Computed example of a mutant assay.
Amino acid sequence: MALRPYALLPAQYDHRRLLATTVDAWGRALWLIGPEAAPDPGRYERFAARPRRHPYDALLVSVDGAGGAVREQHLYGLGLRVSRLEALPGGRLLLLGPGAPGQPDAQVHGRGGRRRHGFEPGRCVEFAMADRRHHLWFAYGDEGVYGDPLSSDGLVLRDGGGNHRWGYSPPPGVQHIDTVYALNVEDGTAWACSYPAFPLLEARTDGRTTLRRSPVRAPRGLAVHGDEAVLLGGGSRGAAARADRLHRLRLTADEAVPVEEARLTFPNGAPLTRYAKPVGRGGRLYLHGPTARQWFVLEV
């Protein structure tokens, strides 16, 4: 099974430094382009860079994956080293990363490109994803879960302003979230797989949750549509984890039942050995390889 091309950063930006990229809840591929910057060897993505001074201005480039329309938005006075970005309703943009002294690590910029407010998101953010209804989900790693009260729930729901609305609490007899490995967000619902037991957690914005047993350990990507789920990476039934293994599952009331396994490749048949953290949006799973300028998609 092969990915298909989804969105490509236009060639006129090839000489510019990329700070972060994602695919948002509306299906738009987003790239944040900064000023002259120094490469950051501490991050996996080869495009990663850190601005040489703060504050700085940046350019947001969006490409509509469905029609290819390209748009630009200028952002002003960024006070953090951006590692993640996420589009919010109303033309707002959430930026996350280490803030300059006295600056929070999450900042929201308005439609005009200027900062409106900021908040502290908690330590060790693994995922920060919004839906189209002013819901913002944060998922955390173990350093945050065990070291920061803001991160201790493992999976947290905030409103579009960054205010805490809900945190996950496991039912009796179920292990607490240690680290979230894969997250999928669609309108009103988040799906997560987390260490140590890797159940498939369905969490709704009204606080209802459902846990399903899953045979897949340590998946890296997750897509869900109806009663079907696809997990990318990880291993099952004692098999060693592989980055290109695709697990197709059928969802019941309390279990994710294996249906088939396949090998996922890039569109040209090249092996899917290295890729950045996938972005799960309902029945779609987006990912890019060593270059952050090209996004690919898998649809359930």
Score class of each variant (00 low, 15 high):
residue 187 D to W: 13
residue 141 G to Q: 03
residue 236 S to Q: 09
residue 164 H to N: 06
residue 128 A to H: 02
residue 218 A to I: 09
residue 238 G to A: 07
residue 169 S to V: 05
residue 206 D to C: 15
residue 145 V to N: 01
residue 230 V to R: 12
residue 172 P to I: 11
residue 222 L to E: 02
residue 150 L to T: 07
residue 182 A to T: 06
residue 135 H to M: 05
residue 140 Y to K: 00
residue 200 L to C: 10
residue 199 P to Q: 14
residue 155 L to M: 02
residue 220 R to Y: 11
residue 230 V to T: 08
residue 232 L to I: 10
residue 204 R to M: 15
residue 197 A to Q: 15
residue 177 I to D: 01
residue 140 Y to W: 03
residue 155 L to F: 01
residue 178 D to H: 13
residue 188 G to P: 04
residue 166 W to T: 02
residue 128 A to P: 03
residue 161 G to E: 13
residue 212 R to A: 15
residue 161 G to P: 08
residue 248 R to K: 07
residue 239 A to G: 03
residue 179 T to W: 00
residue 133 R to C: 10
residue 246 L to H: 09
residue 214 S to V: 10
residue 142 D to P: 00
residue 214 S to I: 04
residue 153 D to S: 04
residue 175 Q to N: 13
residue 203 A to H: 05
residue 222 L to K: 01
residue 227 D to W: 04
residue 219 P to H: 06
residue 167 G to T: 03
residue 219 P to L: 07
residue 156 V to I: 04
residue 158 R to H: 08
residue 140 Y to R: 00
residue 207 G to C: 12
residue 207 G to L: 11
residue 132 R to D: 13
residue 245 R to E: 03
residue 170 P to A: 14
residue 210 T to D: 14
residue 133 R to V: 10
residue 141 G to Y: 02
residue 173 G to T: 05
residue 193 C to S: 14
residue 215 P to F: 11
residue 185 V to H: 11
residue 215 P to T: 04
residue 200 L to K: 05
residue 198 F to G: 09
residue 200 L to A: 10
residue 173 G to C: 11
residue 226 G to K: 09
residue 218 A to W: 06
residue 195 Y to A: 14
residue 204 R to W: 13
residue 219 P to R: 04
residue 203 A to V: 12
residue 210 T to E: 13
residue 240 A to H: 06
residue 190 A to Q: 09
residue 190 A to Y: 05
residue 142 D to C: 00
residue 142 D to L: 02
residue 217 R to A: 15
residue 144 G to P: 01
residue 186 E to C: 14
residue 185 V to I: 05
residue 165 R to E: 07
residue 138 F to N: 01
residue 222 L to C: 07
residue 170 P to L: 11
residue 225 H to Y: 06
residue 242 R to G: 07
residue 201 L to N: 05
residue 132 R to N: 10
residue 149 P to G: 07
residue 128 A to W: 01
residue 194 S to W: 04
residue 206 D to R: 13
residue 130 A to S: 12
residue 210 T to M: 13
residue 196 P to K: 13
residue 204 R to I: 15
residue 235 G to H: 12
residue 187 D to L: 10
residue 165 R to F: 08
residue 159 D to P: 14
residue 235 G to M: 14
residue 139 A to M: 01
residue 235 G to L: 14
residue 143 E to H: 10
residue 149 P to E: 09
residue 177 I to R: 02
residue 206 D to E: 14
residue 158 R to Q: 05
residue 129 M to D: 01
residue 135 H to A: 12
residue 137 W to Q: 01
residue 218 A to C: 12
residue 182 A to N: 06
residue 129 M to P: 01
residue 202 E to W: 06
residue 158 R to N: 07
residue 207 G to V: 10
residue 189 T to A: 10
residue 230 V to N: 08
residue 234 G to A: 09
residue 138 F to W: 00
residue 196 P to G: 14
residue 161 G to R: 11
residue 156 V to C: 01
residue 190 A to W: 07
residue 162 G to C: 05
residue 247 H to N: 06
residue 163 N to V: 10
residue 205 T to A: 15
residue 159 D to H: 13
residue 197 A to R: 15
residue 219 P to V: 12
residue 183 L to G: 03
